[in-house]
């Protein structure tokens, strides 16, 4: 195909102008990779559907079931336990915030050291390995392990969120630092500055808005995660939700869900607005 195009364009230049000129089209890049990727994704989808024993007929009953439980929960939510729910929600938010702070305070220095051009190679590899391992362990597992040490308290939840977040937060930190095309770092080096001066006076001020924004984002993620951690007993709104689901008190569960959704959306929008402000000011 390409050979044919080539030979035609070659002869076109040597032939009289009466012939229609052939555009010298460069050979089209191969799309083999894309085709293979599409095929693989399709295959994975088919295999996973086949191995999961999906009863497709169940799907038909799903809307009716959803409607039934929605009616149980939201037709007449029980607001009598609202004060307690708000208190537990507040504990969840505190847990999320404490966890986010813990995570950020640990992951920023470690992430900085894991960036190219900051830490030595052995430390960089070790830290990246640590982040990867932490990322591979779900929050719930970390919480279950911590429960045996610190007991059934929201502090366990905060600790679990703090540790679990370090993996992603550390990765974000070193990736941010590495994408800084910052002349200020050159200037600090030229002035004789070592690693400390480089990090403190060139990288830190340039990365600060992005890191602050990530910290807020971690808080948003933690609010959602704290509800999940409550289910394994770490306290907060999650525990209350798990308990009333077990008691099958659907009207209370409905009220709790409303509290969770409204609070999460409110926190998300405030935090999101703050993050936009930070990045615009950058």
């Amino acid at each position: 195909m390409n050979a044919a195009l080539d030979s035609r364009s070659r002869t076109a230049t040597s032939r009289p102008a009466s012939e229609r000129p052939v555009l010298a089209l460069p050979p089209r890049p191969s799309r083999l990779g894309q085709t293979v990727a599409t095929a693989v994704v399709g295959l994975v989808l088919l295999v996973s559907a086949a191995t999961l024993d999906v009863e497709w007929s169940d799907l038909r009953e799903l809307p009716a079931a959803v409607a039934e439980y929605a009616a149980l929960m939201f037709a007449d939510p029980d607001w009598s336990r609202l004060p307690r729910a708000l208190f537990e929600m507040w504990r969840s938010i505190s847990m999320a915030w404490l966890g986010a702070m813990l995570c950020v305070v640990v992951s920023i220095p470690l992430g900085m050291l894991a960036a190219h051009g900051v830490g030595p190679a052995w430390l960089r590899l070790a830290l990246r390995g640590l982040f990867a391992v932490i990322r591979a362990v779900p929050e719930v597992i970390i919480a279950l392990v911590l429960l045996t040490v610190t007991g059934l308290t929201p502090f366990t939840g905060a600790l679990a969120l703090g540790i679990a977040g370090i993996g992603t937060q550390g990765k974000w930190t070193y990736e941010t630092v590495e994408t800084l095309r910052d002349g200020a770092a050159d200037a600090v080096r030229a002035a004789g500055g070592g690693r400390t001066a480089l990090v403190r006076w060139a990288l830190w001020p340039a990365a600060l808005p992005a890191l602050l924004s990530f910290a807020l984002y971690r808080f948003e993620i933690n609010i959602r995660m704290s509800a999940v951690l409550g289910i394994v007993g770490a306290g907060g709104i999650g525990s209350m939700l798990a308990n009333y689901t077990n008691y099958r008190e659907w009207d209370t569960v409905g009220m709790l869900l409303i509290v969770v959704v409204v609070t999460t959306m409110a926190v998300d929008s405030v935090s999101g607005a703050l993050r936009r402000r930070i990045m615009e000011g950058a």
Binding site: G183, A191, G192
Partner: peptide, 21 residues
Amino acid sequence: LREVRGHVGMIFQGFNLATRV
């Protein structure tokens, strides 16, 4: 080397300041 660099000032085409500071 850093010690010697301390005695040599340098300015750049792109100024290379920490812009947020």
